[in-house]
Design a protein around this nucleic acid. Structure first.
Lengths: 137, 137
DNA sequence: ATATGTACCACCTGACATAAGGGTACAAGT
DNA sequence: ACTTGTACCCTTATGTCAGGTGGTACATAT
């Protein structure tokens, strides 16, 4: 099997391409943001449950849950526990804001400042690795 | 075989532990800086050639060359081409100045600002990976 | 009983970069 | 001739991480 589609009240259509280089969860995030931007979905609209969507799209629960988690972090959707998941009031604005862009920009500045000081790529990578791993413990 | 030692005029002793998690070249860098700080070696002292040290320590030329390259960048040693390699006049000061410290501090600040914004570890890693790899080409 | 989101646990897979080694070669000097 | 640092080539192995999947369990509500 490869990919799957989900049609909800003829208002939302999600297409997942398993052969796409983009990770499945990222495709889901993009599709939902796109649906919001193109006004196919609006604030307050009900999204399918994680298990439901995973089943229709032939995906794993975790994959869908990951997408929902990211979407909620970006305030594109709101999860209300047992009551289900809904489109966030400010979804449209928050769908266009790309958190990644700001991360890349700021990180790029930092890395460049290192390189200008003659720091080796290896050293930057090592420092990065240490920080990312230690903070977890 | 595991690791090796190098004794030079009973003034310098380098111990490499191949089982250590720290990369071999990094161990070498640390050992030489330590030798400078503890005044076992001083400005003008002659260091063994890359090939010589690699042979004694049972390391590859490249590994030693990498360590020397980093040490010269930090102005702990001076390579004078065919004439060999020597301890830098300001070696002691430059051995204590930890370029890594400033890198870690600044990088830590940047990463923390990301996490406070809810950015995922994965996303930070991916952004980091993209930046480090694209700049190389 | 059923459904919701969520939080754990573990596993497998592929991709990728680092680290390290082997080899060859060069210009510059002794 | 010999040695110096250095710069390429290619190969290997190791480790790490992302992505995905599987299962179980929980509190909260209907």
């Amino acid at each position: 099997m490869s990919g799957g589609t989900y049609g909800c009240n003829k208002s939302m259509e999600i297409i997942i391409d398993i052969d796409d280089a983009m990770p499945l969860f990222a495709q889901l995030v993009g599709q939902i943001k796109k649906a919001v931007i193109s006004k196919k979905m609006g604030p307050g609209d009900n999204l399918p449950s994680i298990r439901q969507l995973a089943n229709d799209l032939e995906l794993n629960n975790k994959t869908v849950a990951k997408a929902y988690r990211l979407l909620e972090r970006d305030c594109v959707i709101q999860t209300k526990g047992y009551r289900g998941t809904f489109i966030h009031p400010d979804a449209e604005a928050n769908s266009t804001v790309d958190l990644n862009a700001w991360v890349i920009t700021k990180l790029d500045e930092t890395i460049n400042s290192f390189k200008e000081s003659g720091v080796t790529d290896s050293e930057i990578r090592i420092a990065f690795g240490n920080l990312m791993n230690k903070r977890n413990s």
